[in-house]
């Protein structure tokens, strides 16, 4: 499952590169362009953002500030992590509800250049809400039943890109 999603992510970013770079080459080499390049690559970008975020949550890789929680006892850290997971889960539930509404609303709205339904774009947030919700349920279950190791509790320092 995860492997499949990772390949999807790789394919989407590769396709973005091809569309945008292809457009530069066509414009200079052949004085033409791909009319839907801007639009479709943008939609892929939305998917890369939200699909990537779900995979990243699974790795525990989202950027956070751990100066305060780092000083707590393991118990306190567990409590903070559980509260945080619960709040994130609630956010995901709200997101899922709103995303469902927006997706349904945009089924009949079509993008001008490609003719794609905008539901394609909004469903990325729907996927994100549901996918993250599942991961969080799992993580809260493991926290509550004591199955989560202390190592997992300390999120590694992810190399922030900036």
């Amino acid at each position: 499952m995860t492997k499949g999603l990772e390949w999807m992510l790789i394919a989407m970013l590769s396709l973005m590169v091809l569309l945008v770079f292809g457009n530069v080459v066509l414009r200079y080499g052949f004085n033409s362009g791909i009319t839907f390049s801007e639009e479709v690559s943008r939609f892929l970008f939305v998917w890369v953002t939200f699909l990537g975020s779900v995979l990243l949550l699974r790795d525990g890789g989202h950027l956070g500030v751990h100066i305060l929680t780092g000083r707590l006892s393991p118990r306190g850290r567990r409590a903070c992590r559980f509260t945080s997971d619960l709040l994130v889960f609630l956010c995901c539930a709200l997101l899922t509800k709103g995303a469902w509404h927006q997706t349904m609303l945009s089924v009949d709205n079509h993008a001008p250049a490609s003719g794609l339904s905008l539901a394609v774009v909004y469903s990325a947030t729907l996927f994100c809400g549901v996918g993250m919700g599942v991961i969080l349920l799992n993580s809260m279950y493991r926290l509550a039943t004591g199955r989560m190791t202390d190592d997992e509790l300390n999120p590694g320092d992810v190399e922030d890109a900036l």
Partner: peptide, 18 residues
């Protein structure tokens, strides 16, 4: 390549979600 692209996509999405 796939490994590199995956790493780049994940780091980018950590910023993009923010």
């Amino acid at each position: 390549l796939p490994g590199i692209i995956l790493a780049a996509a994940k780091t980018a999405s950590s910023i993009m979600l923010i």
